[in-house]
Amino acid sequence: MTAVCRVEDVPVEGGVCALVDGTAVAIFRTHDGNLYAISNYDPVGMASVLSRGIVGTRGGAAYVASPLHKQGYDLRTGQCLDDPEVRVATYDVRVDDGVVWVGTS
């Protein structure tokens, strides 16, 4: 796993993008304090932007809306909530002593 930033660097209900093993990873912090990591690449808009989306809930699930065309992605599973065919990769994330660690394998 790679240490990418401190927890405070990730805004509550916001995201940051980190480079982990050459991959652009979007890291989000939800209102309840949980951290999630998914691919930063929006496969519909075809651009690396997901960390810049609005974070909230759909149904019960924490999700992010792509800033390009607003498709929602479940932060736990990477599943696109507007298209069952689309899913983005998710990554392991944990906090150790205030530092956020992300793994890509």
């Binding site: 240490a3 480079l19 050459g22 991959t23 652009a24 930063n40 690449y41 075809m46």
Partner: peptide, 17 residues
């Protein structure tokens, strides 16, 4: 045009937290 996520060489130096 983009055709998918790009993988950077792992050699790219990355800052520490």
């Amino acid at each position: 045009d983009s055709d998918g996520p790009v993988l950077l060489g792992a050699a790219i130096p990355v800052g520490r937290p």
